[in-house]
Design a protein around this nucleic acid. Structure first.
Length: 287
DNA sequence: CCGTTAACCTGAGAGC
DNA sequence: TGCTCTCAGGTTAACG
């Protein structure tokens, strides 16, 4: 589900709601997420105050005292929900701001605070939690996911060297979190549209102008998406149950067979399959 | 090492 | 209504 902008919105919601709040108790109803929830997970949080919440690429990081951290990845369908405390833990249909029915069987982890609880719901269970007990291990964990799309290190020299001699197409590069982290399937198509680059163009065939455009529009697209509150296709909501609006600004994603939105372009948006992922592009202005 | 495929899992929606 | 099929915003082991 969530790419960098959506995860950023979730993080911001969490900062508003649970920063400096103490966790009284944690219940795990299903340990079988992408990686099994480890033994001792529940005890890790007992009476711990959440000192800060940050984000790296598509990961949310909860900070605790003594350099303890909990990393959360939302996978495709993971969501967090704030619920009032005086409902049974597996009752799901009341958030603070919006009544929304959520299949309670997918509530896998619940964090109890003084007046409310934070519920992790994830139908497909591609998300995961990971506990980390030192700053060194935290940095190590993120080492492969560098640079992040918004990082200054995602620059001309870096990209030029990485793409040199490579036959892999640029769409796949943008999705490769070890090449650049934070971009997912929606924003990869959107970014390449603004760059006027065909998603199948090989890494080695990108010219300097292409690369400069990728740097420029990666940042513009992601930042604008954050400003719009992220994209809500099916189930993305912030923790207040509010949807994002960026999907209204999609230029190519989910617009197959429609006209290119660029004035003076007579192209049609095509949908193709690249490595089992839907990819959208204009057949006229993306070369 | 490089690039591609299949697999992990459930639910929504289309088509019949 | 109900069955079957396809597809979904992510990642990664395994393969050639």
């Amino acid at each position: 589900m969530p790419e960098l902008p959506e995860v950023e919105i979730v993080k911001q919601s969490l900062l508003n709601e649970v920063k400096n709040q103490k966790i009284n108790k944690v219940n795990v109803f299903n340990r079988n997420l992408r990686y099994k929830i480890q033994k001792g997970f529940e005890d890790f949080f007992k009476n711990q105050k959440i000192l800060n919440i940050s984000r790296r690429s598509k990961f949310i990081i909860f900070h605790f005292k003594n350099k303890n951290y909990c990393i959360l990845h939302l996978g495709m369908s993971g969501t967090l929900h704030l619920l009032k405390n005086d409902y049974p833990s597996n009752s799901t249909n009341l958030s603070f701001y919006q009544s929304k029915l959520l299949p309670k069987k997918h509530n896998h982890v619940v964090f109890y605070f003084f007046k409310f609880k934070l519920v992790y719901n994830d139908p497909r269970r591609f998300g995961f939690f990971k506990l980390i007990d030192s700053k060194y291990k935290l940095d190590n964990f993120f080492k492969p996911f560098f640079p992040e799309a918004l990082d200054k290190k995602f620059n001309l020299d870096y990209i030029k060297n990485k793409l040199k001699y490579k036959s892999k197409n640029i769409k796949n590069f943008l999705l490769d979190q070890k090449f650049v982290s934070g971009i997912g399937n929606i924003y990869a198509s959107e970014i390449l549209y603004y760059c006027k680059i065909n998603p199948l163009k090989k890494g080695k065939n990108l010219n300097i102008k292409d690369i400069k455009n990728i740097i420029k529009y990666t940042k513009i697209v992601l930042k604008n998406a954050i400003k719009s509150g992220g994209s809500s296709i099916k189930d993305f909501k912030n923790t207040k149950g509010k949807s994002g609006n960026f999907q209204k600004e999609f230029k190519v994603y989910d617009r197959d067979n429609l006209k290119c939105l660029k004035k003076s372009c007579n192209g049609i948006i095509k949908k193709i399959d690249i490595n089992n992922r839907s990819t959208f592009y204009c057949n006229n202005c993306q070369k």
